[in-house]
């Protein structure tokens, strides 16, 4: 009896992309947490000396809260993409990933508004410098997450959302959720407690 040539069975592997993303997410989060810790420590030091951190009234709460709401909505849409990937539902998957990207873009636009409305000079003091360092780093992380989402969406165009690509969507969603949590830190530490 002769059989057709068959490839070897695929080895049983843990979800490689998920594990890698988990490590990358942890590294990103630790770096950002270090930055926020530095911000809090310097603010504490400035206040303990009786000084003012930001000039009163220089930071508005409205745009910051709107960004938090936008990112929370993006968490829902990215999870929608994960669900669509599980169900191999490409139209909904693209729509969900596209909406997530739209929300990400909206946050960047809102940050540009915040920068204009505060009008801080980066060399005006430690508070202003750290304000730009923390929020600028957040924007870099957000752009990286958007690139991850965009690549995942493009990969899903070339075929069905099978198991591997489904894992890619889950990995992108994991990173996105961590970005939303990073913004939560910014929102609470920089904007709420000022």
């Amino acid at each position: 009896m002769k059989t057709a040539s068959l490839p070897a069975a695929a080895p049983v592997r843990l979800r490689t992309l998920m594990v890698g993303t988990l490590f990358a997410t942890a590294a990103t989060f630790i770096g950002f947490l270090a930055l926020v810790s530095l911000y809090v420590q310097q603010r504490q030091q400035a206040r303990s000396g009786g000084g003012e951190w930001f000039p009163s009234g220089s930071i508005e709460m409205g745009p910051a809260g709107m960004m938090m709401a936008t990112l929370l909505m993006s968490s829902v849409t990215v999870q929608w993409a994960v669900q669509a990937a599980r169900a191999d539902d490409r139209p909904h998957g693209w729509m969900a990933l596209g909406t997530t990207l739209l929300f990400g873009t909206a946050v960047i636009v809102q940050f540009s508004f915040v920068y204009q409305s505060t009008g801080f000079e980066i060399d005006a003091g430690i508070a202003q410098l750290l304000f730009y360092a923390v929020t600028g780093s957040f924007i870099v992380i957000l752009v990286a997450a958007m690139a991850f989402i965009a690549v995942t969406a493009l990969r899903s165009l070339i075929g069905p959302l099978d198991t591997d690509r489904g894992h890619a969507v889950q990995a992108a969603a994991l990173f996105w959720h961590s970005v939303v949590f990073c913004y939560f830190l910014v929102w609470y530490v920089v904007f709420i407690t000022k």
Binding site: I30, G31, A34, L35, L38, E121, G125, L129, A133, S137
Partner: peptide, 27 residues
């Protein structure tokens, strides 16, 4: 290294932002 190097990167971000500002402030 994942717990160490990102912290160093955060230090570098602060110093870099300060140096790239017009007049270095503190870091």
């Amino acid at each position: 290294w994942l717990f160490t190097l990102p912290v160093a990167a955060a230090n570098i971000v602060v110093v870099y932002a300060d140096l790239r500002g017009r007049d270095p402030v503190a870091f």
